[in-house]
């Protein structure tokens, strides 16, 4: 049972990291807390579902289309809404949360709730690993999370735009003196964050079904992981995913499933009491000391 729990805890870690990485990317670069994140996640899921069932498109085409739509949507949200209020954290949160509410509640109003709204798994197969059944989808999630994190690391360390991202995240005004356009980078960060949400949805949604409630859930989990890890830090997202991922599964197995939420919320409280800026939130901590 211990091995099985550990395996599922690892999978849970990968799921959490995948959910949080897009939110974290946007925040890390532009300081925008995209509270519409859960909504664009669900939007992508419904988008793929519609293209598959109503238009009978092949799966890969539907996924690419949904990712493309989210990319555009993220950029549009920045250009037409956030641009005017950039820099005021509270206004940004209210605006993006408003957009998120509108999207999610629209789906609820349209009555798109129920078990028939789900996405197919990639390959319907399962394996036995160390005496535990694990299906192909979950293995795909773990592999994809790892590849994605490595890919993002490469992107931010070895491409001009990725390096510009890191520059602007550290000191916006200095980045400006090198010709790095802060609005362009913020637009890209919103677009990429939303696209990552779409990818996460395509991988994770097949494990359950699509519902507006799931959107709020994803937002809360992404927030929890990012806050524990230290907002904007990729290393923090990974570490926090492990903490919450393991805490949830082990509580589920050894204490009781109704305690899961309490334990992960308690983990947030403990981490924030000990390190108020999150595990890897170094820069913030310096400010606090001053």
């Amino acid at each position: 049972m211990l091995i099985g729990t550990t395996i599922y805890a690892l999978i849970n870690t990968a799921i959490l990291a995948l959910m949080a990485i897009g939110f974290n990317l946007t925040f890390g670069i532009s300081g925008i807390a995209n509270f519409a994140y859960g909504a664009v996640y669900i939007l992508a899921a419904y988008g793929v579902w519609m293209l598959l069932t109503l238009f009978q498109l092949p799966y890969p085409v539907a996924v690419l289309a949904a990712v493309g739509v989210n990319l555009l949507l993220g950029a549009l949200i920045y250009r037409f809404v956030l641009l005017r209020i950039r820099g005021q954290a509270l206004s940004e949160v209210i605006a993006t949360f408003g957009i998120g509410l509108a999207i999610l509640e629209l789906f609820r109003y349209l009555g798109l709730v129920g078990f028939e709204y789900h996405l197919p798994v990639f390959v319907d197969k399962s394996f036995v690993i160390a005496g535990t059944y694990v299906d192909f989808q979950r293995i795909a999630i773990v592999v994809f999370s790892a590849v994605l994190i490595l890919g993002l690391w490469f992107f931010t360390h070895h491409t001009a735009i990725g390096l510009a991202f890191r520059g602007i995240a550290q000191d916006e005004r200095t980045a400006l003196t090198f010709g790095i356009d802060s609005n362009k980078m913020a637009t890209l960060s919103m677009a990429m964050g939303a696209a990552l949400a779409a990818l996460a949805a395509v991988f994770i949604i097949p494990l359950g079904s699509i519902s507006p409630g799931e959107g709020y859930d994803v937002l809360i989990k992404a927030l929890a992981v990012c806050i524990i890890g230290g907002l904007g830090s990729t290393g923090g997202v990974i570490a926090a995913s492990f903490i919450v991922g393991f805490a949830e599964r082990f509580t589920d197995t050894y204490i009781g499933s109704h305690w899961t939420m309490i334990v992960s919320l308690a983990a947030i409280l403990v981490v924030l009491t000990v390190k108020p800026s999150g595990l890897f939130g170094n820069q913030k901590e310096l400010e606090e000391r001053i």
Binding site: H157, A160, L163, A164, R166, G167, A175, F178, G179, I180
Partner: peptide
């Protein structure tokens, strides 16, 4: 890396 960011 500072140089590479500056060389955007």
């Amino acid at each position: 890396e500072n140089f590479r960011i500056a060389g955007y």
